[in-house]
């Protein structure tokens, strides 16, 4: 299918069920909230080696936060509740507790005990017995003395079902064209609520396939989309494509991932063939591994 000169391949992105949670981090200024958010969601591009995938969902105004201060909302995704809990615990402890003036709250509705993600419940021990808990409006908060005052942290958050691994592959004539298109698409996709694009700048170049010729490598480069290999039989690239970039999408629901996909497609199509983009495709594993399939043709704007 050709839209505004851009090839939209009739394929689908294959995504997986994950567990996610949202944290609200506030601070005295938006900048310090951002610092905390950046650090806490840093090194969280892929569950393959980071433990979780995370990102800043958006910035929050004082009116939107529980304690009336500026903040950021963060989404964390992992393969299961317990690993998610572990990741939140360490990131909270090392990146938010440590950051001047911050407070941290759960950003999801109260869930069941099985879905619990400990926050203050674990961190409180940092208070060495001087911590204090308060129950406000049915939720428990911990107040931990720190050197600039008090770290206020909700006792726990909860994991919610989520979808990870939605993606778009942008096939372009040249590297800069691919990069500019990816930036534009990522910006458009970030306006969609409930999703994050976990890679740096939202964009990834090292798309991968499952398995490798080397033992012990669970994934290796997606050689079918590497332009330097496009003469080989396995290549899926037409001759004119010199650069491919991928945008990975994690969202709380399949609909959120779909909405982000649509937003990306819309941006790319609107920019047209003149932007240097040849076409758009998506990565999948033949439909055998993930139960969520995002068909590009169904998600066109």
């Amino acid at each position: 299918m050709l839209l505004n000169g851009i090839h939209i391949e009739n394929t689908y992105a294959e995504a997986f069920d994950m567990k996610a949670t949202r944290l609200i981090v506030t601070a005295d200024t938006p900048a310090w909230a951002r610092h905390a958010g950046m650090a806490a969601t840093g090194f969280a591009t892929s569950v393959i080696a980071c433990g979780c995938e995370a990102g800043i969902e958006r910035e929050l105004t004082p009116e939107e936060t529980p304690d009336g201060r500026p903040g950021v909302s963060l989404l964390f995704f992992a393969t299961g509740r317990s690993v998610l809990g572990k990741q939140v615990e360490t990131r909270l402890g090392q990146c938010i507790l440590t950051c001047p003036g911050t407070a941290c709250f759960s950003g999801v509705p109260r869930g069941s005990k099985e879905d619990l993600i400990p926050m203050g419940q674990k961190l409180r021990y940092f208070g060495d017995g001087q911590q204090m808990s308060k129950l406000v409006g049915g939720r428990r908060y911990w107040r931990i003395p720190v050197m600039d005052g008090e770290f206020l942290c909700e006792e726990s958050s909860w994991s919610v079902p989520a979808v990870g691994g939605g993606n778009l592959l942008i096939l372009a004539d040249a590297r800069m064209a691919a990069l500019e298109a990816a930036e534009a698409a990522a910006d458009a996709m970030r306006t969609v609520p409930n999703v994050v694009l976990p890679f740096p700048g939202g964009v990834v170049r090292s798309g991968s396939k499952v398995g490798a010729k080397y033992k012990g490598m669970p994934a290796s480069t997606n050689d079918a989309y590497c332009p330097t290999l496009r003469g080989l039989p396995r290549s899926r690239l037409p001759a004119e494509v010199e650069s491919v970039l991928e945008i990975v999408i994690d969202g709380l629901t399949a609909a959120d991932v779909a909405a982000a996909t649509t937003a990306g497609l819309k941006c790319l199509i609107e920019r047209g063939r003149g932007s240097g983009v040849w076409g758009v495709t998506a990565g999948n594993y033949g439909g055998k591994l993930g139960r969520h399939h995002f068909h590009l043709h169904e998600l066109l704007p």
Binding site: D67, A103, E150, L152
Partner: peptide
């Protein structure tokens, strides 16, 4: 004297 974010949280709650 201390600045306590918890108080703002509580006040927000009371307003509801």
């Amino acid at each position: 004297l201390n600045q306590l974010p918890f108080l703002s949280l509580l006040d927000n709650h009371l307003s509801e």
